[in-house]
Write a protein that binds this DNA or RNA. Structure first.
Lengths: 129, 129
DNA sequence: CTTGACCTTCCCCCGTACTGGAAGGTCCAT
DNA sequence: ATGGACCTTCCAGTACGGGGGAAGGTCAAG
């Protein structure tokens, strides 16, 4: 099948598939006599996997690591678990950072809710920030 | 004072200050006869304000909006409040997105905690993702 | 007078995951 | 044979906040 068909089947674009190939996430496709990429319909499975990885917040580089292990004939379960573990800790850290930020921003906004401009002085630009 | 001194006083780098000037966050400094930027030590206050804005998660473009209002002789309280309001909603959305993601990733990781590689098949790359 | 630290402008580079567009070739139907 | 939809490669740009380094000028100390 051609790149456009595969892209539609996998819910993405031809442009993105060429990009994935360039990044090493998809193997170089076979070519027709005229140079068109000719895909096995099963390639869609691999693209689905990439999408699942993205949904889990993995970067393309991390997804590529998993794919490389699998392509090397090994079973990537262990690495997947490690990546998920690291990713989970990272997400937790992001959440707690954002929660702190939310509290700070909320406090600032509340202070700014009833502004008393006359107490502002130009030196500090805005006393509510 | 020279750009390097100001940078150190404000906890940043000369490079960043030139960048801020280029972006319109800092007014063009006066120049010495030989072309060196010559700052008023009070410029540090403005840089501190930029840092406070960044700490509140505002972009440089948003901080510039506030600065422009202040530089226009108006009081930016209202705009600051609006920006903080929008920022707060955005942070809350990010938090709830991340919480959902955390739950999904945690479930995947737990499933991968005791892998049964024999039940994996190459077609799906990794059944734990 | 020289050395070293500082300054100037300039343009390119980082990561992330694409997207847009130009210039040209191909496939299929009419 | 012609039109339109598709394909190819390559180059550039997006948002964000800077960083790296070259080529050259300047300043103060020794």
């Amino acid at each position: 099948m051609r790149i456009g068909e595969l892209a539609e089947a996998a819910g993405t674009t031809a442009k993105t598939l060429r990009f994935y190939e360039e990044q090493g996430l998809l193997p170089a496709a076979e070519r027709t006599a005229s140079g068109y990429r000719d895909y096995d319909p099963e390639a869609a499975t691999r693209i689905d996997f990439i999408h699942r990885g993205q949904a889990a917040g993995l970067t393309l580089a991390q997804i590529k690591q998993i794919l490389d292990i699998r392509d090397g004939g090994e079973i990537p379960c262990g690495h997947v678990r490690d990546l998920l573990d690291v990713r989970l800790k990272d997400i937790e850290r992001q959440i707690s950072d954002l929660v702190s930020l939310r509290d700070n921003v909320a406090a600032l906004r509340d202070a700014a809710a009833e502004p008393e401009p006359e107490t502002c002085n130009a030196d500090e630009v805005c006393r509510y920030l």
